[in-house]
Nucleic acid binder design. Structure first.
Lengths: 254, 254
DNA sequence: CGCTCGATTGATGTCATTCAAGGCTTGTGG
DNA sequence: CCACAAGCCTTGAATGACATCAATCGAGCG
């Protein structure tokens, strides 16, 4: 991301910058290389493919595309969704910088869902066969990869709990609190952030309609729990929102 | 399971039978050792821990238990569920012979859900640290393990689609068709099987109430799509049920 | 300006839940 | 053997939460 100060004084560094480099990446404490020593990070760097820009509303991959790479998000946001035989779509997740995309494709060697950029974004291509080769040499990397896959499993189990058991209000609180904590983990404000997705996307993800999301926002605003201006959100009462999300508190419909 | 005919004539075989043995297991084409050659199966056998019996309604593990083993089901059925802060439970899956339990625990080194036997069952303990050691020596095993984890991710995405988008009738059809195909893959009848779980468990899994499940069963029965006697189910019109599951067909409420 | 797209808000409708009652099966003890 | 209780399931009626339908608004943009 940071350009070398002068092309002439450091051509090698510049060439290096054209490829992805975990060593210089600000996300390497969140991303795949987490916990690796410098030597191993360099070995990982050697197999990382090119960076790839994905403009807003463009697909990173589509369902049934052959599986070659995992993708680590450098910056930007994505949504993943799948489409059932009758054409209905379900958003299965929103992903942000430092998160890994494509793990659902390993099982069938084809992608199982679509991944679309919510804004102009950039990812690192990670050729999966080469990554697997590397695993036998860097057990730490392998173990961390398993943790990441397992984390994806538990994340989805939490969404199942949300969709199966929670009322609209709790679902939406869970959604907000989740975003908040993920931004916090990235050093951004946990109380003030931008929704990168439309109301419709939020509704689809939470198993609700766009109208319900709109009403929930209005209600939360009226209760003084947050401020909204278009997609800019400010959480005014995070404690209350967390209580709602945990299900230990509930608000009157008003 | 099968005891040696005589302890005296084959003590070695007996000792062997006390441990799990993938080589002799009828499920090794479905389970972890899938695709391994004999030599590698033997190496896997060396690390497999003891077999463990789990009686009906007993826990194999509970949420927050420290993670040591994965478990491969030899026979029987399990359900996994998690409980949220306010005490509500969501069943995240039903597992049967040849399937792997515990992958959600890798990320935090503690189990993320409870696993309970739906009937008297038996599992093989697979000590995860030893399995990870083996991965660096058997790439085929590692690759297959990744496929299994990835498959769990896509399975859960399908459930998210179900819970987020489908009406009760379609959810239930998906549930039946899914059981049917899994029994078929194990060589059992795809049209005639026993539900190992209560109506309440089915409802919880599908995000519905026990009453809804009961009504759905009655309706499907009245339509002539299936027969039910207690937990014994017979699918009379699998084609129709598949169409319902795919969302290309829909029935009147009656 | 006028168009489109996303969002908001209100009125109405519907599907699944909740509440309630009763049936069937199984197990226990007299 | 029957009586009785406990679990699990079924069925009906009323309720409610969210969806659907419809109208309007506002921002962005050609």
């Amino acid at each position: 991301m940071s350009q070398p100060i002068s092309y002439v004084t450091s051509p090698a560094l510049n060439v290096h910058a054209l490829k992805a480099s975990c060593a210089n990446c600000s996300l390497h404490q969140l991303c795949l290389p987490m916990g690796l020593d410098d030597a191993d990070i360099n070995r990982l760097d050697q197999i990382i493919g090119r960076r790839r820009r994905v403009l807003r509303d463009e697909s990173l991959y589509r369902m049934d595309d052959p599986f070659r790479n995992l993708y680590a998000i450098r910056f930007g946001h994505f949504k993943t969704y799948q489409i059932n035989p009758s054409g209905e779509q379900q958003i299965t997740g929103f992903q942000m910088a430092g998160e890994l995309l494509g793990m659902d494709a390993i099982s069938a060697d084809r992608h199982h869902c679509d991944a679309v950029a919510l804004e102009d974004s950039e990812v690192c291509e990670i050729p999966f066969p080469r990554l697997e080769e590397l695993f036998s040499h860097i057990p730490t990397l392998l173990h961390h990869f398993h943790r990441i896959m397992s984390q994806e499993i538990t994340r989805e189990q939490n969404v199942m709990l949300l969709l199966g058991n929670m009322r609209a209000e709790q679902r939406f609180a869970v959604f907000l609190v989740n975003l908040s904590s993920r931004y916090a983990a990235r050093g951004y404000s946990p109380t003030s952030f931008q929704l990168r997705m439309s109301r419709e996307d939020i509704g689809n993800y939470l198993g609700l309609t766009i109208e319900s999301i709109s009403r929930l926002l209005s209600r939360f605003k009226k209760q003084g729990w947050l401020k909204v201006d278009k997609r800019e959100v400010q959480l005014l009462d995070p404690v209350m929102l967390k209580a709602l999300a945990a299900g230990t508190e509930s608000c009157s419909p008003m």
